[in-house]
Amino acid sequence: MIINHPLLGPRDAAEFVYLGDAALIDRPDWQAAEAAEAFHAYGYLRDNPAGAHQELWYHEQGDRSWLVVTRDTVSHEITQVELARDVARARGRSR
């Protein structure tokens, strides 16, 4: 597979490490009332779609950036690659 890095261009997937669902960006608030439930869902519950899937890849043998890759789990087609940092900020994560 080839991942088209937003800054570096196409790179072989061998340079990357796969983590999983990009929902892992959405780490719950530790002080929320239902924090235990929320962390349980965050840690254990995943969708397993046959189709478009947003997932985290780490460019370990590259620039060390975490990427959010939108990949079709059936065809392996990759339709979008973003810096996870940008995605995290867009989802409201900050400090």
């Binding site: 370990e60 043998q61 590259g62």
Partner: peptide, 10 residues
């Protein structure tokens, strides 16, 4: 310049 992997080495 590029960082990549060669023979398992960064």
């Amino acid at each position: 310049a590029a960082r990549t992997v060669m023979e398992h080495l960064g």
